[in-house]
Nucleic acid binder design. Sequence first.
DNA 1: GTATTATGCAATCAGTTGGTTGCACTTCAA
DNA 2: TTGAAGTGCAACCAACTGATTGCATAATAC
Lengths: 113, 113
Amino acid sequence: MSPASAAATRVRDAAPLFAALGDETRLLLLFRLSSGGPGSITRLSEDTPVSRQAITKHLRVLSDAGLVRSSRQGREHVWDLEPKRLADAHRCLDRISRQWDDALDRLKKFVEE
Amino acid sequence: MSPASAAATRVRDAAPLFAALGDETRLLLLFRLSSGGPGSITRLSEDTPVSRQAITKHLRVLSDAGLVRSSRQGREHVWDLEPKRLADAHRCLDRISRQWDDALDRLKKFVEE
DNA sequence: GTATTATGCAATCAGTTGGTTGCACTTCAA
DNA sequence: TTGAAGTGCAACCAACTGATTGCATAATAC
């Protein structure tokens, strides 16, 4: 695969992920889940100033991005982090960080010349 | 600072960054800059299907997020990555990755119990 | 069974976003 | 100096987003 199309693939994977992470309420939800453990919609809504419906929508976005998942327990929907996709996301971030390192090195050398 | 407000601060920093990264065109621009070096708006527009004005707007978004900067050279505006902010972003990604690692560990232990 | 709780669905709304086009302005080169 | 090249600005547009409210539905508790 050419470098250009490799970048394109990487970008198609990463952009929706970043987009899902690019909202304060959603990030707070993720932090809430990662430190406080799983929770129902109602419980997750209690921590925030926005309505339950708004939280539902945000969970849907995170779910579409594969970052969380839900399981039905009685009348409750319990949401939690999705380990597999979370690991994917982590690798994705590392890869981009590494490429940025390379870019920083390039800039550094450029300045030194 | 309490854990909750620490998370809030982290989130306020990270969300706009992720939002800026959450678009294919902008990510491609960043990869283009990190692999191909600095370039004028016209040059950067040549690689993409969208108009020059669209690229200008995306560069503005990236600039607001502190990820790129421009310098005037004659009638051209030359854009390049912003090393300092890029390093900040890198650290931010690492911090979140680490927290996710912790969350994954927690999930793992939870499953094993 | 009936009230309560947890959730889903739909309509609505203002604001943002990603994109375009047209025109004006500055700078460079012949 | 005159035309071409590189940008900026402004208006405009369709689509998406984040959020709300009201009502319906399903499960639980008493």
